[in-house]
Design a protein around this nucleic acid. Structure first.
Length: 280
DNA sequence: ATCCAGGTCTGTT
DNA sequence: AACAGACATGGA
């Protein structure tokens, strides 16, 4: 099916900015994308996207995934007004959107993301899907669903090691066992405030503030979080503290004070903008 | 070879 | 409370 999208939509910006790991680049603005137990082929030409699924399937699953209910054009104007200094980043990464993904998939993916590179994260997540996810088939061939909690609850540290998770093996086991036992309820975070949710998430070994915030933002759509990594830290200290180092808490309070409920989106522009700047 | 990748944990001051 | 090192793995 084909669909018209607003100007604030570009597949490469959306998929390659480090919020999702189960996609493959097939060509110019052409990708395969997996989420939960689904897969689509999707290609963009100008404002038209061509998706391999039915209208019904798109409406039911992928419309939400790509956050098409929100008008990013308006959001961007608000952010520009709040902070004109990041206007260039918004121009450059005009097509980014915050994907709404499956919580469990975000737990696993972002635990793996710590001190790791994009390519390696993708590899390990895919290894886990291929080994423990249900095998599915569509018109393009075989693919794998993201594994269920149940399936991963039987996986040992050693087995995660074999899939190249490295030292994060024990963190994965801890997170999965807490979810499987009900100590952590995947649904409870929808009803918790960002602060309460973060506190709960950080009871898991291997989930610190950064990983917790990514789970809240990409898995639960908490738009008031502002995940801080080395890049963001550098950008924010330059913007607001004249390059002098300050505690993360101070930095985050400042970010929230400035961007409020637009923090999640603003952070994406800043993050990808900085990365992009440093690539060359 | 050395350093670093969307960090976090642990042990020392 | 603040800081240093360790940690698996792979790519530059």
């Amino acid at each position: 099916m084909k669909l018209k999208v607003e100007d604030s939509f570009l597949l490469s910006h959306i998929l390659k900015c480090g919020q999702t790991f189960r996609y493959e680049e097939l060509g110019e603005e052409k990708f395969s994308v997996c989420s939960a137990d689904r897969r689509i082929m999707i290609e963009q030409k100008g404002n038209i996207i061509d998706v391999s699924c039915s209208e019904e399937e798109f409406e039911k699953h992928w419309k939400k995934f790509f956050d098409l209910e929100l008008n990013y054009g308006e959001v961007k104007e608000k952010i520009r007004k709040i902070e004109p200094k990041i206007s260039d980043y918004i121009d450059k990464l005009y097509g980014i959107r915050i994907l709404k993904q499956e919580p469990f998939e975000m737990f696993i993916s972002f635990i793996i993301s710590q001190n790791n590179s994009m390519t390696n994260i993708k590899k390990v997540v895919n290894n886990i899907c291929e080994k423990y996810g249900e095998q599915k088939e569509d018109e393009f061939g075989v693919y794998y669903a993201f594994p269920t909690v149940e399936a991963l609850s039987k996986v040992s540290r050693e087995e995660f090691r074999e899939l190249k998770a490295g030292f994060r093996d024990k963190y994965l086991v801890d997170a999965i066992s807490k979810i499987n036992s009900g100590e952590i309820d995947l649904n409870e975070f929808y009803g918790l405030s960002t602060n309460e949710g973060r506190k709960k998430l950080m009871t898991v070994k291997g989930i610190g503030r950064k990983v917790a915030d990514c789970i809240l933002l990409f898995g639960y759509y908490k738009m008031d979080v502002f995940p801080v990594d080395v890049w963001i830290r550098r950008a924010l200290t330059n913007l607001y503290f004249e390059g002098q180092k300050v505690k993360d808490e101070v930095l985050l309070d400042k970010a929230y004070e400035v961007f409020g409920d637009l923090s999640g989106i603003a952070q994406q522009y800043v993050f990808y903008g900085i990365i992009d700047e440093n690539k060359k």
